[in-house]
Structures are given as C-alpha cells and as structure tokens.
C-alpha cells in the first residue's frame, strides 16, 4: 500500500515539473453492466487550468468525471476499459489504492452534502482521516478562506454545517475538499442547485482556485463554461446512447469557432 503511495508521490514530483498534463485518458470506455456509457475517450487535462465538460443530458459527463477518482467503483456493475493516467501512472492499475487516488483527486458533488456536524468538524474530519499532525485551527481557517467562506462563518464554527444556506454549504464542501490538499478537484454541476448570486460566488472561487489546482467541472450552463473554463470538452451520444468526445479545445476557440457542426448546434441552442 505505502509502496503505491510513494510511487504516485515521487512520480508527481518528477513528472509535474516536466509535463503540463496532470490527467490523461487513453481509449477509456466506461460500462454499467453491458451498457457502454462512455466510449473511446482520449483526452489530456492540463495542470492548473479549468476544464469544462459539456454535453446533453445522459451523455455520460458525470460518469466520466467519477472515473477520474474511481468514485464510479461505488456503483454496482460499473467497470472500465482503457487507462486513466495521473502523472503517467494508471489509476486503475491493480496496485493502486482508490483511497489514495481520492485523496489526491478530490470531488465536489452536485447537491451540497456537508456532514451533519459542526462547520469546523466538516473541515477537520478529512484532514484527521489522513493523519494530519499540524495546527488544525490554522488549517480550518486557511481552507475556509480559500473557499471564500471564512468571513461568513468565522463566528459560528461550532454551528451545524447544515444550518448554512445552499451556496454556503457548497463552499463548505469545497473548503472540505481543499483541506485534504488534493491536486485535482472534480466538480459535478457544483452550482446547479444554487441561485444566480451564489453561482457567481462559486464561479469566482473556481477561477481563483485554478491558480493552485487543476479543476474539472461538469456544467449545463454554457455561459458558465465560457466564463470559468480554459478548456472545454463537448460530449454527445451516438446511436446506442453511448457518450463520446466530439470536440475538445481551448474554450475561446470552441465557443467562437467550433470545428464540428454538432458543437456549433449545441452551443447555439439548435441542438436535437
């Protein structure tokens, strides 16, 4: 186990200096039992950039996102073929521990899901789980500041995380994910349950965080993708409802001069 962790760590240090790509999929197929939800995806995710994943409902965006930190394994009957490389190391190699993967690649869910514990404990728990030995108060404050939530909650750290508003809860979940010091953060429609103001808050936050983290975000909101992301991947479904990568480019390029007719139809709302 420790062997694996060491391997990933040393490779990160060695490789991240050379390579700009943190994650890479090679001929990735994802199945639910016999149904292929994602087919033959090859894409590279650039370090410290925001990559947006867009596409029609059911094309497999969430499925693909979950495969980056092996959360899809929690679904009965799901399996993959192909490779997901993290700093060149296949995350699905037999000697890789999914627990370590999820430590390095954090996740923020569509529906805010703070623990039914205090705000402080929401942040501290993850760190404690990984054997954090430093000053917990400092870490909690730092993480909450990173998530732009500190000013709002600094006096109520002992209140339940559930007593916050939806937008605050989502920022709490982001702070919670940051506290375990991941390298990559996966976000599945993080603002879809929020009002426009809270959404803008989250978007600003994502831009800010991209200075230090690699972020993958799934969104249905075209403007949001255009506003927050550096790169955008457009997915579509083929005849047997299997999702595939249509076009992947820098966001500006994709939204102004899409190369594919399908992409153009989708972003202009003439899709379907």
């Amino acid at each position: 186990m420790t062997h694996t962790i060491e391997k990933i760590k040393t490779q990160r240090i060695k490789v991240s200096e050379k390579l700009v790509y943190v994650l890479e999929t090679k001929k990735l197929n994802i199945y639910y039992d016999d149904f292929r939800a994602i087919s033959e995806v090859n894409m590279k995710i650039e370090r410290n950039k925001v990559t947006a994943i867009i596409g029609p409902s059911g094309c497999g965006k969430s499925t693909l996102l979950r495969s980056f930190n092996r959360m899809n394994e929690l679904v009965q009957g799901s399996r993959i073929s192909g490779e997901v490389l993290f700093h060149g190391q296949n995350l699905y190699a037999p000697d890789v521990d999914p627990v370590e993967v999820r430590h390095r690649i954090g996740m923020v869910f569509q529906k805010p899901n703070p623990f039914p514990k205090s705000i402080y404990e929401n942040i501290a728990w993850g760190a404690r789980v990984h054997g954090f030995k430093g000053n917990m108060d400092e870490l909690v404050e730092y993480s909450l500041r990173q998530a732009a939530l500190w000013e709002e909650v600094k006096d109520i750290l002992d209140h339940s995380g559930l007593a916050l508003s939806g937008g605050q809860q989502q920022r709490l979940c982001i702070a919670r994910a940051l506290a375990v010091q991941p390298e990559v953060i996966l976000m599945d429609e993080p603002a879809s349950a929020l009002d426009p103001i809270s959404t803008l808050h989250i978007e600003d936050l994502i831009r800010e965080l991209s200075n230090h983290y690699t972020i993958l975000i799934v969104t249905h909101n075209m403007q949001q993708a255009a506003r927050v992301s550096d790169f955008t991947a457009f997915f579509n479904m083929n005849g047997d409802r299997s999702g595939y990568l249509v076009e992947y480019d820098n966001t500006n390029q994709l939204f102004t001069m899409p190369k594919n007719k399908l992409t153009e139809d989708y972003i202009t709302g003439r899709f379907g």
Binding site: V99, E100, R104, G106, M107, F109, V129, R176, V180
Partner: peptide
C-alpha cells in the same frame, strides 16, 4: 451522499462507516 462525501475525501470505508 454522506458516504460519497466521506469516500470523496479519501477516507477508507471503515472511517466513513464509523464517523
């Protein structure tokens, strides 16, 4: 969603179940 929150932070199954 609580279990996923735990796993998503890199907690083991037992840590998630226990806490």
């Amino acid at each position: 969603s609580l279990r996923h929150a735990g796993y998503g932070l890199g907690a083991t199954k037992w840590q998630t179940v226990w806490s």
